[in-house]
Nucleic acid binder design. Structure first.
Lengths: 247, 247
DNA sequence: CGATGGCTTGATACTGGTCAATATGGGTGG
DNA sequence: CCACCCATATTGACCAGTATCAAGCCATCG
């Protein structure tokens, strides 16, 4: 093999398959009917699609924010690290969701983003975003919509943490995950949790033991069945009721 | 006075003074060096500036979102109401901050917005926002920045609720308020809380009694002095330490 | 096969929620 | 101007729920 060919292959494997076809729910391009080629043409830059293995870091808090990232497949978590060094999970991200938008205000990321499993992200440089948005009103509108959805997810998270009962928070969390699964076209009764119990605890501001007990209780009550990180919703309507505080 | 003149005056008092001069920190127009006249010219629509008295509702959850609002003076709170009817304060908004962006995802407001005191808001129709942004790259960038700041405030809120100790949450809250005061060019040691104790409690997911006890404790420890809704930071550095969990 | 990390389960302590009584203060009317 | 009133806030006593500490389980991997 010629050196050039080897280099090209290495590059291809690095950036992965760049087609948007697999990116089934790309929230920016699809509804605006803008293809990757068009974005690249209008923006004059190249979109990288790269694979990340479990636990690898997509970006870190403090880094200058030059791009936004969209998970194409695989889950991510974002983590805020305070001055004492203790970490808090701020968000979970699934395919089609934009990661790290909080950084747009200051131009620096405010969280670390970590892959929860083998994942692929599409990297869209901010400059490309701005150029394309200026030329394509539909795309600009999609951009605003996507940011609004990001804020809405934060709001949902705030509402979870507002619930004082651990069991309510947990029920809301599982119910929300189920809805997101459904939106991805997957079976909403069948949840494969890509995150650990301690991630869940951090996200819900509960210690890991409380999460574990809560899941066990839900299982004892016949609402769900738990087997490690796989769980099945046996009584979705009852789970939703619990999420609403009806016990 | 002629009927026309009376009508004109009534209208003027309704929409208030539309000059942006008083809107000292307008986060969209100023940094992009875009004046209100220019926005109106480029967008073909008129920006309304209207006064709201204490407790009056700016918009309600569920209403179609046609505009974004910016407080020019006066504080606001946003409230999420769940299916059981119980309310949760999701955010506090001060002059220069955009209110209700969570609604952009679904095109409907997700919260109620209520004035905490006599206030004035600038109403910017989404259509105007989009048109101006498409023509003025600086303005578009400011728009993204403003949304990022909105998400960053939600993140700060999440980090507060992540703290398990009531006293830490309260300290973070006061410290954050102080910083926001400072950014508005006001004395950061002198806080006039426009919201009630129960608003604070709801925001921090604490009952009102805990808020009250927490403030009393801070006062007993000489960190702050409290007189109703007015409070003075006596030892800001110690408050910040408490916010970081150093007790 | 033992070791390791992630998860579950149990016993105890303590923070903050609940219920109740009292205090404060801004606004109203005499 | 004062007295009264109501909403808002403070303080106290008690109790519930969750954090903490500790032990054991289970699956995976070397």
């Amino acid at each position: 093999m010629q050196p050039q060919a080897a280099k090209a292959m290495e590059l291809k494997s690095l950036v992965g398959n760049r087609s948007c076809d697999e990116c089934v729910l790309h929230p920016l391009c699809r509804p605006a009917a803008v293809g990757i080629e068009e974005i690249e043409r209008l923006s004059g830059s190249v979109l990288a699609r790269r694979p990340l293995e479990r636990d690898s870091v997509l970006f870190r808090a403090g880094e200058p924010m030059r791009s936004v990232y969209i998970s194409q497949n695989g889950g991510f978590k974002t983590i805020a690290v305070n001055e004492n060094g203790d970490e808090q999970v701020i968000g979970f991200y699934f395919p089609g969701e934009l990661i790290g938008l909080e950084g747009l205000g200051a131009g620096k990321f405010r969280v670390d983003a970590v892959a929860l499993e083998l994942a692929h992200v599409c990297e869209v440089p901010l400059s490309a975003l701005e150029r394309v948005a200026a030329q394509r009103p539909d795309f600009q509108r999609q951009m605003l919509r996507a940011m609004g959805e990001g804020m809405a997810r934060h709001q949902d998270h705030l509402e979870m943490l507002g619930r004082k009962q651990a069991q309510e928070r947990l029920a809301m969390f599982l119910h929300g995950l189920s809805e997101r699964q459904q939106r991805l076209g997957r079976d909403p009764q069948q949840l494969h949790l890509p995150m650990s119990r301690s991630d869940i605890g951090s996200y819900l501001s509960l210690v890991i033991e409380t999460v574990s007990r809560g899941l066990s209780k839900l299982q004892d009550d016949g609402v769900i069945s738990v087997k490690g990180r796989h769980l099945r919703l046996l009584q979705p309507e009852r789970l939703e009721a619990l999420a609403h505080g009806d016990d």
